[in-house]
Design a protein around this nucleic acid. Structure first.
Lengths: 203, 203, 203, 203
DNA sequence: CATGAATGAGTCTTCATTCAT
DNA sequence: GATGAATGAAGACTCATTCAT
């Protein structure tokens, strides 16, 4: 997920006043999500994030009291991206097409996945080693994805929608792990094709 | 993988002199693998490992010059466990049974997977964020697993053995991620059952 | 060299805002140079330097990322002192007098030399055991000194100015080593007198 | 000094019993002197010395209770080399020739001096930063050299023999420092030639 | 005497976090 | 609100020294 992240940097220059704070906060959250994806949470320093967001380090603390809050914000960024993505997909008339577009989006990101894995899955995996609430936040996002997928299957008339949704998402996470570990985007391409065929078979 | 790790600590008490060095080294490698699984590599202190292995910190460096070497050793421990596991499974007469036993082993570890994910998959995921050779070491182990699975499918007469193997392993990694993130061992149980049925369908 | 180091700590109290950063950085560099002189680079702890500069250890790294950078800065401090010294000497009308003043300055520091050797020579000697670039930095300063001395001889009309310069500097380094090893400032006094007579003979 | 170190490894195989300890002890002392020359005392590990002397680390402590004792032994090795050297030079009939041979020996080692400085001078310089007795031991060796040189000048009928001796040794130390710092063996060649001419002028 | 292994104190270095302007 | 600088608590790593065989 978090693919199709053509999240246009929506700072429309026309928007007049609105405290810049919001923009900076968001910039930091997005920077965090990105660096976490590339380096992992633990390896990432506040400086890394600040630099990417082009915000002086000392200033970060005006927006986030702790590093954990930045992690939370990064998870939030993923949630937002997922919401934006599903909203876009919902525009398609057929639920099967929506799922296939979802998968296609993932496959399109296979080069990134080969290098750094699924942007959200690897984050969730890292957070799962902890027992603060952060893992719960990640779980929520994962559940949201499954729920949306499940909704599509329901619309397709499948009574076992929830099961199928878990299967689909698990398949994506699994191919991401292998693609990443073996550094082979071909795996994601091949597995993605199978998944699409599988959807077609169900429709 | 790395499940079914009933690797009996084979220090037969009869073995008389034999320098203890090897044993300690192995103890450290296993301790490292275990703590890495629970806490992740980055969060893990040399002290954590030393404590679990019951070795004074300073002494760790007699066996491993750097933390990275401990990571390498942990990967090696996973490789060794996998080898031990497949060797045991090879004792079964039918390749399909071997695969089903493999899956069953995974499912048996579902509680652990729910808490900490796949012991090897999460390690590989974390190492993939780096670009030293460590990620390659992890890739090797993953390939070894796929190769063994593929071998079983070949013996079952499947010409698409390699594809099926990737599918099986990806499925395992995927269900591990979801089981872990959602903290729900039920997912692994359900998905495992499906996988077994799938094997049966192929045979 | 590095004698006549009456480098007045030029923090004119009138200077109003100006970021203190530069001052602290310089304080650290000077502290490093001094402690290196007394204890040698290897025996010197970052704590030693920090304590002398009255800076908390952790803060040292805000200015210098590694201990090596502090060594570099110390060499830089020597370069600066040398520059300040020669600039002062250049005020004298006669080149021969400049050289004699240089020597006199060295002799004035003979007690220190007896205890710790030449502040810069011993540093260069220690750095020469390494093969990172630090030894080159030291070489530069040594060359600068020789060049300045050579310039004086040239002004005195000596065609063999460079040779004489090497002779003079080597003589200083040699007497420093003996003065230091034998813990006898008298050596430097006696040898210095000879050098001055030698200069007079050349003029 | 310490040049002309053709100290034949005098383990005449005919020497019958004599505990081997002596040989090992000497090997360690020589190894220490050599590594100290290359790396400096502080940078040198007991392991470095043990490895070069081909003695297991643990065994070093049978011969030397502390690292400092090894330093002492290294100084002793220098003293012994100096004694061997002067004994050999004493075979020459003319004192002036002895001094010239001494200088020639130094010049012959100029490549080493360019890389690591005078084997003994740099050691003395490093030890001078300490205030345990080690610096005194080094001073003794330096004094022995000066005394021998002074003796030659006395035999040449010079009443200022001691002064000349200090001048000669200081000149050697000085050219060593410059040769080393500037990494230029040519300096030692040129300065050595001058020294020899100086001796000739005195004779 | 020999030797691999053990020990623990100490050093450099990193960083999240806070503070003073 | 913004920002460079400050701080201190770790953590990785080294090594002289000691011990058990």
């Amino acid at each position: 997920m978090s693919t199709l992240s053509q999240v246009t940097d929506s700072d429309s220059p026309t928007r007049p006043v609105r405290r810049r704070g919001g923009a900076k906060r968001e910039r930091l959250a997005n920077a965090a999500a990105e660096v976490f994806h590339r380096q992992g949470v633990e390896k990432t320093t506040l400086n890394d994030i600040a630099r990417l967001a082009d915000v002086p380090v000392g200033n970060v603390y005006y927006y986030f009291k702790t590093k954990d809050q930045l992690v939370e914000a990064a998870v939030g960024a993923h949630r937002a991206r997922l919401a934006a993505l599903t909203e876009r997909l919902d525009a398609l008339p057929e639920p099967a097409d929506r799922l296939k577009a979802l998968i296609t989006g993932w496959v399109d990101q296979r080069e990134t996945a080969a290098r750094f894995g699924c942007p959200f899955g690897t984050l969730a995996t890292e957070l799962d080693k902890r027992d603060d609430g952060l893992d719960q936040a990640a779980a929520e996002v994962m559940r949201a994805l499954i729920a949306w997928v499940s909704g599509q299957f329901t619309q397709m008339g499948r009574p076992d929608a929830q099961d199928l949704a878990v299967e689909l998402v698990a398949a994506y996470q699994g191919m991401s792990v292998l693609t990443n570990t073996l550094r082979d985007p071909g795996i994601m391409a091949a597995r993605g094709a199978r998944l699409i065929a599988w959807i077609d078979g169900l429709a």
